[in-house]
Write a protein that binds this DNA or RNA. Structure first.
Lengths: 173, 173
DNA sequence: CACGTTGTTCAAAAAAGCTTGAACAAAATG
DNA sequence: CATTTTGTTCAAGCTTTTTTGAACAACGTG
């Protein structure tokens, strides 16, 4: 095998912070950042998840800050969100006061956590909104009430299809 | 049936533009705006789709502008995007030079259009990125190369599951 | 072919969302 | 209990995205 002093991503460094990511790590993190933005999740969260995905060991917050060059606020907030959807899990190491984190790497759980945290609440409140709309139609009784009720019915069918669909996603993945 | 002068949403009006949405329409549009933002689509696009969803007749751009109180630029740009994913269809009415639009109201087609326009391109380019990562691992041959390759393999499996999954979505909905 | 209508484009303004950093809380240490 | 370490919160700043509006292209029409 050919010699190789691991090529690293840009970012020359001066005093404290140091990126120190290998190319393959930077590449993977990039994949996660893109995937995150596709589903409307902030960059820093994709970065953190990606870094943990690459890491063989659980990482504490300050290492995450150093490697990704993000602020304490971002790191703390990002980990909070990731914990919330169950995408990272805290690991307690003896002899180290700091919380360490690993990523959840079962696709099914990742998706499940995201759905129940980010999607289901909207689905639930959506149901109430449809009831309000129905009330408005019946109250105002516009001349095209028949059409309006038809649309409402269609929307309700989309709603219930989606509710059936999401659990099915779990099984599939 | 009880008397009722249709209650309308806020927005007193002065000279030209007029919102003139009924409560039930405003409610439905709101549902679409929320759904749109859930999947990272701008508000104005959700509004336009919602308005067309409520309307019994195809609508021309200037009516859309007037009812939603949005600018010509937004309306034009929003319709362009919606046409792009096949969420609205142009309808040509004789005796009227203006293009009119109706919404696509088959859920399957809506979702299909969105996926092939917004998701598939990312999936495709993602595949190339994984190859680049693999090359980086083999080139640098870091001491944890075994672990790195394991992660890459996992990510590849997620990738192919997703590729299988998306067409399945179509059938289900 | 001059004119009015319809629709697109794009630079600048506005809005929305993310990140930062400093102040604060909590908890372990000596 | 004073001090240090670890982590959270949140207002202010910054970036990115969206919206606006005016200039311009396209196209019928008379």
């Amino acid at each position: 095998m050919s010699a190789a002093r691991n090529t690293r991503s840009p970012l020359p460094e001066g005093g404290e912070a140091q990126s120190d990511l290998l190319d393959w790590e930077a590449g993977m993190i990039d994949v996660f950042v893109r995937a995150a933005s596709l589903i409307g999740v902030p960059k820093s969260i994709g970065q953190i998840y990606g870094l943990l995905f690459c890491s063989e060991e659980p990482l504490p917050m300050d290492e995450i800050m150093d490697k990704l060059l993000i602020s304490k606020g971002s790191a703390s907030q990002g980990l909070k969100t990731l914990r919330g959807i169950g995408a990272v899990k805290p690991v307690y190491l003896i002899g180290d006061r700091r919380d360490h984190y690993t990523c959840e790497d079962k696709l099914r759980r990742l998706v499940g956590g995201f759905i129940s945290d980010q999607v289901n609440p909207h689905l639930t409140s959506g149901s109430d909104r449809l009831d309000v709309i129905e009330a408005a139609i019946k109250r105002d009784n516009p001349e095209n009430a028949k059409h309006a009720l038809g649309r409402l019915k269609l929307l309700r069918s989309w709603h219930s299809k989606t509710k059936l669909f999401l659990p099915a996603v779990q099984k599939f993945l």
